[in-house]
Simulated assay, not measured.
Amino acid sequence: MSYPVQGACQCGNVTYTLNQTPKMVIACHCIECQKLSTAPFSVTAVVSNEDIEITGELKEWRRIADSGNKNYAMFCPDCGNRVYHFNPDAPSTLKLKLKSSSPDDHKVFEPTVHVWVSEKQDWYEVPKGVKVFDKQP
């Protein structure tokens, strides 16, 4: 895989350039992520702030997770695509939780970890060879 990788929201008003390999790619099967993605799970690439460049106007949405962690989302105000999530209470470990929106190479978003499999859809089979966690690791 060669970098940088380009991506954008549905309407193209928010774009990003990912300059490095994500630290990890997580498939989250929790009920909230099922709602977010309108799919059986949500895919998130954890990247460092310095490894990504984002252009375009973003709006913010917030929720408090069951753990008490703050989960903030930045999204395109025109098409509604979430671009990334972050926790403002973890500035020393702040990572962008990049949502997989139209990258040049889809392989960059292949999950290596599956979390909250205790809430996964019964019909979905987690691939062999990936780390699996019943809840949040």
Rank of each mutant, 00 (worst) to 15 (best):
M1D: 10
P4K: 05
V5N: 07
G7W: 00
G7K: 01
A8C: 14
A8D: 08
C9G: 10
C9S: 04
C9L: 08
C11R: 02
V14Q: 06
T15N: 13
Q20M: 10
T21Y: 01
T21I: 07
P22Q: 04
K23G: 08
K23T: 13
K23P: 01
V25K: 00
I26F: 00
C28Q: 03
C28K: 03
C28S: 08
E32T: 14
E32R: 13
C33I: 03
C33W: 00
C33V: 04
C33Y: 06
Q34C: 09
L36G: 11
S37Y: 04
T38N: 14
P40C: 09
F41V: 04
S42V: 02
S42N: 14
A45L: 01
A45K: 02
V47H: 02
V47T: 02
V47E: 04
E50G: 08
I52G: 07
E53N: 11
T55Q: 14
T55Y: 02
G56P: 03
L58D: 06
L58I: 10
K59T: 06
W61E: 06
R62C: 12
R63C: 12
R63E: 13
D66V: 04
G68D: 08
G68L: 05
K70W: 07
Y72M: 10
A73R: 14
A73F: 13
M74R: 15
M74E: 12
F75K: 02
P77C: 07
D78Y: 03
D78L: 10
C79M: 06
C79A: 03
G80R: 11
R82G: 08
R82V: 13
V83P: 01
V83C: 04
Y84I: 03
N87D: 15
P88F: 09
P88Q: 03
T93H: 09
L94Y: 11
K95T: 12
K95Q: 14
L96E: 12
K97A: 12
L98Y: 03
K99V: 10
K99M: 13
D104R: 04
D104F: 01
D105E: 14
D105N: 15
H106F: 12
V108D: 07
V108M: 11
V108Q: 08
E110L: 11
T112F: 00
H114A: 11
H114G: 03
H114E: 13
V115E: 11
V115D: 02
W116H: 14
W116G: 01
S118G: 05
K120E: 04
Q121K: 12
Q121A: 15
Q121E: 14
D122F: 11
Y124L: 15
Y124Q: 09
Y124F: 15
E125W: 01
V126N: 04
P127R: 06
P127Q: 08
V130D: 04
K131P: 00
D134Y: 03
D134G: 14
D134P: 03
K135A: 07
K135D: 11
K135T: 08
K135H: 13
Q136L: 14
Q136W: 11
